[in-house]
Structures are given as C-alpha cells and as structure tokens.
Nucleic acid binder design. Structure first.
Lengths: 186, 186
DNA sequence: GAGAGTTGGTAGACGGTGTCTACGGCGCGC
DNA sequence: GCGCGCCGTAGACACCGTCTACCAACTCTC
C-alpha cells in the first residue's frame, strides 16, 4: 500500500464529494484509508494542511475543466461557457466547492492557490480584453466579473438568490452578469 | 443577572468581533457569560442555533446601516453608497461577516435570514428600477448586482482579488460592478 | 402559609475531535 | 549483521457538543 500521502488525499476527495465537508475529520479520513489516526501526521503536519491538499485537488479539477473549454469560439461565447462551467462546478461539487472557498483552508493554501488561480485569471483577463477592446483596464473588469460569478455560485449554493428571486433558475442572473460586464446583448 | 439568552448572544457578538469565529465554541461563550456549559441549552437547543442567533444580530446590524443610508440621493449614488457600505461592513466585521455567510449557519437560519434579506433586497430592486427604467426585470439585475457585491466582499476578504490584481484597492472593482449593472459612467 | 410543580442553572458522563509523544517494526546501507 | 532512519501504531491530553440527573429557588394553589 504505497503512497499513503496520495491515498489520504484521494480518500478525502472521495469523502467530501460523497458526504460533504462535515465528514472530513482527520480521524475519519485515516479510518477510511485504513491507517491509524496518527499516520496522516507523517505527511500533513496539521488537519488543515490535509484539507488544503484536498482542496488543491479541487482547484486542479476546476482548472482542468476551464482549460478544456473550446478555445476557438468567439470570446463572448467563451466567457459565457466559462461562467456556466463555474456555476455547474459549484452545483455539481457542493462539498468540494465549499471546501475550496473556506477562509481557513484558503489561509494556509496561499501559494498553492496562487499557482492555480493566477493562470486561470489570466485567461479571463484575455477574454475580457478580446471581448471589450475599448476598456482600459481589462483586469479590473475581469476581477469584477469573476467576483460576480463567484457571488452567484456562492449565494446560489445556499439558496439565497433563489429565495429573493422566487425562482430556482440562476441562468438569467448569469446572462445578466456576463452582459453587464461584457456590454451589449447576448 | 437576568436574561441569560440575550447575554449569551451579546457575549457571542463581542467574541466573534474581537477574536473571530474560532472562539465561538459553546463552552467558551458560556464561560464568558459566567454560566456552566450546560446553561445555554435552556435557550438554544444546539450550538448551531446559538450561532444563528449571533449571526442574526449581524444581519440586523447590516440592515440598520443600509436603512440609514441617505434616502434622498439619486438612485445611482445610493447604489454606490450601498455597495461601499456592504464592502466596508465585510472589511470592518470580518468575523461576523464570515459567520453570517457560513453555509451551516445559514442552513438553520432560513426564516430569520429571509425576514431580513428580503426587505433589503427589495430596496436594491427599487433602486435598480429607478436607475434603469429601461430594464424589464430589475429583480434579475438586482440579484446579479448583489451577487457581485457579495463576491467582491468575499473574495476580497481572503485576498484572492488583491492577489490576482496586484493591488489592495478594491474600489475600482466596486465602481466597475456598479457601472456594469447600472450602465453608463460613474 | 405549606406543599407541589415549574423554571433555570449545575455537574458530570459520553463519544468524538486534533495534536503530541513514546514506541515498534521494517528495510536499507554500511 | 547490524545500526539507523523511515513509517506507522497506540495511547494520552485537552477540548468540544450533547445528554441526563440533580438541585435550588420561585410561583401557584389550596
């Protein structure tokens, strides 16, 4: 049974997608991996660092999906696709998404997150620059757009938006956000 | 020492603003309130319900500040002021903001949150409708705008936006968001 | 005014958690 | 062949949330 480190992360990913963040106790992960509760400490000095490694797997997965987006579509369509993908990811991976954007997890994951989010953000900036050549600082628009997507995903996750909108469909919101930041109609 | 219920909430609010969400254990709150760890159970059946009551205080505070916004300014200026207030609240009350928008806390706080967020959202919808009489469904725009503000506050809270933007100033983002959803220039 | 019942808090037990430390077995290199 | 370092175990510790038994004080009733 080699590579306990990798197995712990794998078990954690499995656990969080199957049972949510509540199941991610150090001892439970160790139990499912078939080792004693002290074993993970060999590879992860603290519970949080293990959670961060699990979350990092989530970042990688999200990054991979974004990287796999149709690269030859027009910028506007690509942004829409990216937005939809972001929302779908949040919806389809509730536990993982929650874990990925947990304050404490992010705290200890500074460098790891930076490595994955910076290139992703660069993609978004380029898309915005291509879709709106008129705007002086595309990074600002890209940041605002990203925040918008994230806000929709987050608020949508726990139903706040659905509550005030009296609708379960977040698609109009998504269109509104893309249209707002990219200008023009859909 | 009457009204232990209120005192527990008060202690909790104090504790979360002073030391963050990590200090909000049931036993610690009871300790600071000068009662045994079993006492809170008389008023809050579970730890989460106490946290929800503390968070509710946060909702009330935020609602009060929003309600105190200059009511006679033009809609566009009011939206900008509201956006700034939302961000300032998140920045100035990190622990409380974090608590207020915790999945588990929101879960059990469904009705309480609904009561405060719905009227607030209505204010925003009216502002959007006033600022953009052309738009057919102001609620959708208001929802997207709210998500945008929340995303900026959330991502800004843990420095993600600052990281990708290489800047600590979120003001341009805020302006970009308001301008995007309300149209026109600042 | 005395007794009963309710209210509001205490104290301790239980299972669970994260962290830490001492220990053991195994394999590899000298 | 043997020491040593790596990797995992086992148990202790303090803390946590929940639950239950108890108790003191107050109120209500006859």
């Amino acid at each position: 049974m080699p590579d306990l480190r990798a197995r712990l992360v794998e078990v954690g990913v499995d656990l969080v997608t199957r049972e949510g963040t509540g199941a991610l106790s150090l001892r439970e992960i160790a139990r499912r991996a078939g080792v004693s509760h002290g074993a993970p400490r060999r590879y992860f000095p603290t519970h949080l660092s293990l959670l961060a490694a699990i979350a990092a797997e989530g970042y990688r997965g999200l990054a991979a999906r974004i990287a796999a987006l149709e690269p030859h579509a027009p910028p506007r369509a690509r942004v829409t696709a990216l937005a939809r993908l972001y929302l779908d990811f949040a919806r389809g991976n509730r536990g993982m998404f929650e874990l990925m954007f947990r304050h404490e997890v992010l705290r200890g994951n500074d460098v790891g997150l930076r490595e994955t989010s910076r290139p992703l953000f660069r993609v978004l900036v380029d898309l915005v620059a291509a879709a709106r050549p008129d705007v002086a600082r595309p990074a600002v628009v890209a940041g605002a757009l990203w925040a918008n997507l994230h806000g929709i995903a987050q608020l949508g996750q726990w139903g706040s938006l659905q509550m005030v909108l009296d609708s379960d469909d977040l698609e109009p919101l998504l269109d509104a956000a893309v249209t707002a930041h990219l200008g023009g109609s859909s």
